[in-house]
Nucleic acid binder design. Structure first.
Lengths: 295, 295
DNA sequence: GATGTCCATAACGAAACATTATCACCGGCA
DNA sequence: TGCCGGTGATAATGTTTCGTTATGGACATC
């Protein structure tokens, strides 16, 4: 069997109440139903989430790791409903643009300026997604176009067109006072002692770019410092002086003063690409490409 | 009835295939089952998601708005399973720290430096959450402490302690060449003509801080430019010169050179707070508070 | 108007899910 | 030691969900 939202709701309630009976009260159902839902959930996952322990319950390691994501899933389902309701109320006409991490901000600014000029008054929504989701949304018309970063152009289904906008050096961000910060260039092996902060988003935004991809391609083993959710936080941790980060060079424009960027000599440039669905017109794309010519 | 993951899977398949039969094939079930699931889903939501249109299907407005979130929900459930499995394999010992948007990066850097010193070698995970989720995770021990920003201290249940770290001016970020960019201070009414870029995350991270909160408290109606997912993108759009953004003043340290910050004179300072669960020790908190004394 | 495609509906069996009643376990306590 | 209150699990049972196959009806194309 598969997991269900019902099961997740039960698990979250039990985890928070530390008590099957109270969880059942909160959910407005009888206690055995909670027991059964949790058993079904554990069976589906093939793991024990809570330790039944005479007096109340205790989360297992797996349960503790599962819990925040279970909450995320429930919250996400609520958001889905709200989004649908908002659309029903006629809140529409938003232009959605996809974005994967690693796109240099100033490059995005150039594009957005162009879009805003082409469609004055439109409400814009820039949505960070995995490349696969961007393609799916382009295909179903939910998204107008997407900007993505990676070493090699993503393979996309025929109707989606890929245009290269830029190719720029990948760099390592270090604290200003770091011994390696004055170097002109660096190579990965020289960074073996560093601890890296990466964008986690729990693999939602897994990309061929960044540390994971580099490690996979070069065999370099990066030590981890922290996982964070966005570039701003990533740079904040580099600013602690305790961590490094791999980022496109031009991100240095948006970094705190005490963070230095050193190009990675042994890495191929990061290519920024524009994806759009050829079937759906996108008259702006001509302009977009004109202003954003490859470096 | 409630919505189910099964229903969401069916809807996504139908939306992507634009065809009930192919969707059924992909899901490995019979076509009527797909029809029924979709009917149940639509009944639960009380909205029409797809228009059955003789030849194939077409998404409604509501369906198009619902679709990306449905995908998010499914992805999130997959992540939950992966997180549980990772914990089963013994990948543990991570220190999780909560963060709500609006916390000045350098303030976070100070804290993280302290944490890293106190627990050398620990894997750190900085997780952006809503304040409610942070409290829930503090309560169940999944999170060690959380840093949050807002005008008023959050109301939290007794065992969770709140300590104020800083109070700093709220500012509006404008392009360097904007007529108002040279002012010493600004007030909200002076910004009535601006279009703002806000952090959306589709209200996951809805906060009393930021535009929504300010508007609610002052009656100011902000015009919208775009909704984005993180501060980096937000600043990139301010750099287009077409949009403003409301941010804590010290975020200017991390902004591109062509973005100027002007303090908002009619807004109370944004307070940064540290939340932790008193029952669970947290010996570091003494140090944290010592180094991060209120400004 | 015959035909094919597509989705909806009907009918029905199996699995899921809820209920109430009861059991088994454990900790405290006289 | 043996009883007790409180915990979660289990049993028995009815309802709903959810899948199946078979069939119907709408709407294109030719």
């Amino acid at each position: 069997m598969d997991i269900s939202l019902k099961g997740l709701r039960c698990f979250v309630a039990v985890a928070e109440e530390r008590h099957f009976g109270r969880a059942a009260d909160r959910l407005g159902i009888a206690q055995p139903a909670v027991s059964q839902q949790l058993q079904r959930l554990e069976a589906a996952l093939d793991m024990t989430l809570v330790r039944r322990d005479g007096r109340g319950v205790l989360l297992t390691e797996a349960g503790a790791a599962f819990l925040p994501h279970a909450r995320d899933t429930l919250e996400s389902s609520r958001l889905a409903i709200r989004a649908g309701e908002a659309a029903m109320r006629g809140e529409t006409g938003t232009v959605t643009i996809g974005l994967t991490p690693g796109v240099p901000p100033h490059r995005l600014a150039d594009l957005m300026r162009q879009v805003a000029v082409a469609r004055p008054g439109a409400r814009l929504r820039v949505r960070e997604t995995r490349i696969e989701d961007a393609c799916a949304q382009l295909a179903d018309g939910t998204m107008r176009f997407a900007v993505t970063s990676g070493f090699t152009p993503p393979s996309v289904s025929p109707p989606i067109e890929v245009a290269e906008l830029a190719a720029e050096p990948l760099a390592v961000a270090l604290h200003r006072d770091h011994p390696l910060a004055r170097r002109e260039t660096l190579t990965l092996p020289e960074l073996a002692a560093e601890r890296f902060t990466t964008i986690a988003r729990d693999a939602i935004r897994e990309q061929p770019f960044g540390l994971h991809g580099m490690c996979r391609r070069t065999g370099f083993r990066a030590r981890k410092f922290a996982e964070v959710d966005d570039v701003t936080t990533q740079l904040a941790l580099v600013a602690t002086g305790l961590s490094a980060a791999a980022l496109p060079l031009s991100m240095s424009r948006d970094a705190p003063a005490d963070v230095t960027f050193v190009p990675l000599a042994d890495q191929e440039p990061l290519r920024t690409m524009l994806l759009h669905d050829r079937r759906r017109g996108l008259p702006e794309v001509g302009d977009l490409l004109r202003i954003a010519t490859p470096v």
